[in-house]
Computed example of a mutant assay.
Amino acid sequence: MEHCNTLSALPITMNSREIAELVESRHIDVMRSIDRLVERGVIRKTPLAFFEEINNLGFSVKREMYVFDHAHKRDSFIVVAQLSPEFTARLVDRWQELEAAAAKPTITDPIIAALVHGLMEIDGIKQQQVVIVRKTEQLESRVEQVELQHRNGVPQGYLSRSQAHVLHGIGLSAEVFHLALHQLEVPTTPYIHHAEDGNDVATFAYLESDIADAVRTFIDDAIQVTRCMCESPLLNGRRFRYSK
């Protein structure tokens, strides 16, 4: 058994009652405005349709209304511009809603319809994931900025000169420690140090992952010449206070 899986081509229409609601006017006033515009040749006469409503006496009566199809879309804008120009945006939005609804396929095969629905849900989930990833990246970026401020400007993955000496100095004086890292070419990066007194100072930080190995190399190559002194070939034989 075959099912029809073609797209439905439903006509896109808007009637004078809808226009009256959009521009917050009485339907009779909208009808009169349309008649005047037709008489003056500004717009083309649109098809008439009928609807039922309850009058003041409680009886059901038939009323006329004009129907604007896609071919008369231009005319509907002219009608609204004549009645209430400030509501033109509402008419634009309504036409877009109607056209978007008409663009959706109508599928009679329940299995294919279910598959299409599932694909649409998956697409919606993917779009949500994209939004989540974007927001996560923004949050991570913000967290990095906050952490940077808390680190007084030291970039992620680096240590300031004082931090590096405190954590990896292992008894070396600050002068010898920095000379050793310089000789062993530990990577550095410039940054602006945000001092507590509010002053910003240009300085540099060491790449944290390379500091420990450099210090270890420096100490291993050093020669113990006295109980408390070492001599370093990396510093052209300079002696420094250290006990291995």
Rank of each mutant, 00 (worst) to 15 (best):
T136S: 13
H117N: 02
V23K: 03
V67N: 01
A102K: 01
I112Y: 12
V42N: 02
E97W: 09
V130H: 13
L91C: 07
L37P: 00
Q127D: 03
T136H: 13
P11R: 07
L139R: 10
M14T: 03
R26F: 06
L119H: 00
L119F: 05
E18N: 00
S76Y: 11
T13R: 06
A103C: 07
L119T: 07
R74F: 01
M65C: 14
V61H: 00
T46M: 05
E21N: 05
R134H: 15
N15Q: 08
W95R: 04
P47I: 07
M65S: 09
E53C: 12
F50D: 13
Q127V: 07
P105A: 05
L119Y: 07
E18H: 05
I125V: 13
F87G: 08
G118E: 04
E121W: 06
K62L: 12
F59M: 14
S76K: 00
V116S: 00
V130I: 13
E121H: 01
L91D: 00
R32L: 05
D75P: 03
E64C: 03
S60P: 09
A49K: 10
H117D: 03
R63W: 00
R17H: 07
F50Q: 14
A9V: 08
V67T: 11
S16Y: 07
R40C: 01
M31L: 15
G124F: 04
R90G: 11
Q138I: 14
K45Y: 08
H3W: 15
K104H: 11
A114F: 12
E24N: 03
I12L: 12
A9Q: 05
V38G: 01
M31H: 13
T136I: 10
Q128S: 06
S60A: 15
I107F: 02
K73A: 02
W95C: 05
R94P: 01
H117I: 07
A102P: 05
E18V: 01
A9H: 10
F51L: 07
R90T: 04
D123N: 00
A113L: 10
E86K: 10
P11V: 02
D29Y: 11
T6E: 14
F59R: 15
S76G: 06
A114N: 04
N56M: 06
L57F: 05
S16C: 08
I12M: 03
L83W: 11
K45N: 01
I34Q: 00
R32E: 14
P85S: 09
T13Q: 05
E52T: 15
C4I: 15
V92C: 11
N15D: 15
E137W: 12
L83H: 05
V92W: 14
P47S: 04
D69C: 04
I122C: 04
T46Y: 04
E64A: 09
P47K: 10
A71W: 02
S76C: 01
S76H: 06
Y66N: 09
T13L: 07
K104R: 15
E64K: 09
T6Q: 15
I132E: 13
P105S: 06
Q127A: 06
M65N: 03
M31A: 12
